[in-house]
Design a protein around this nucleic acid. Structure first.
Lengths: 148, 148
DNA sequence: ACACTATTTATAACTATTATAAATTAAGAA
DNA sequence: TTCTTAATTTATAATAGTTATAAATAGTGT
């Protein structure tokens, strides 16, 4: 079924007139099959084997293309590197403030908030972003050697 | 009443054993009185008049101190510079994707989401972050000369 | 297979942020 | 008030993530 996602994604690109290069194929594939939310550099390193000559710029360029095509979401964290997330259906992120691990969770109705916010501010709403911060089980157990 | 905030903030710092320097005073004051959500550089430039010799590092250092004291929240946006927000009470941000303007809005109950997320993921929850993206009235009227 | 244009690569530049070390200063003690 | 000391500021350099550029390469429709 992740193959289905890949197929859909490639179709989306083709429809938008974006060329399918081996690099793009590989980046998309990697984004879909890894359940993590990799940084550009992690993607770069992961594909180093297949594409020894690939430039970091290529990764960044394509992540931007994917973002503009609505295939990928970019998650930013201040000075740290952005993380990229293949968009499947609506989900949110739970982030461990100790080790940085990100897991997804689904939650139904946040449309009310959008409507409310739109009403109060007069903005026309496109989307929203919700993130929950906490400590994961593992880090709770490893108290004493906190990193962050 | 913004003077109240400043007083409270200074007290908080003093209690935590953080020295009150003129620079810190000025940065806090600026953060409180400007309703915008300035970047470190904007703060630096705004205080250039009063402190011609102040270093950018000082602004960054103190914003970190304030963040660690829980006085200030940092909002990150990928490659763009972080924006800093004096914490009053719980509010969220509505961000215009066209001009970048940020306005605050209040919304009551998102604690359910925290509880839900905690239950599903097993994380111990500390906080959350919600942002709504859209287009502000002004930019809706100025269609045709889109910036972003 | 060709031609045309998008894309990749390699490199350098840019910008936000942080580290460092020397000079300065806030704040409590004498 | 003056002294003392550790925290803070300043100036500078370094780091890291990301983007711009231009030449080389390669998809895609014909």
């Amino acid at each position: 079924m992740s193959e289905m996602h890949l197929k859909d994604a490639l179709d989306t690109l083709k429809t938008t007139g974006v060329r399918i290069t081996p690099q793009r194929h590989a980046i998309l594939e990697y984004l879909i099959e890894t359940m993590t939310h990799p940084t550009a550099d992690e993607i770069y390193k992961a594909l180093e084997g297949k594409f020894p000559n690939m430039s970091v710029a290529t990764v960044y360029n394509n992540l931007r293309v994917f973002r503009e095509s609505g295939l990928v979401k970019e998650l930013t964290y201040g000075d740290a590197a952005s993380r990229f997330d293949f968009i499947t259906n609506d989900h949110y992120h739970m982030i461990c403030e100790s080790c940085g691990k990100i897991v997804d969770f689904h939650y139904p109705g946040l449309n009310e908030v959008e409507q409310f916010a739109s009403h109060v501010t007069g903005y026309k709403v496109h989307s929203h972003r919700l993130e929950v911060y906490g400590t994961c089980q593992e880090c709770i157990e490893n108290v004493g050697k906190q990193v962050l």
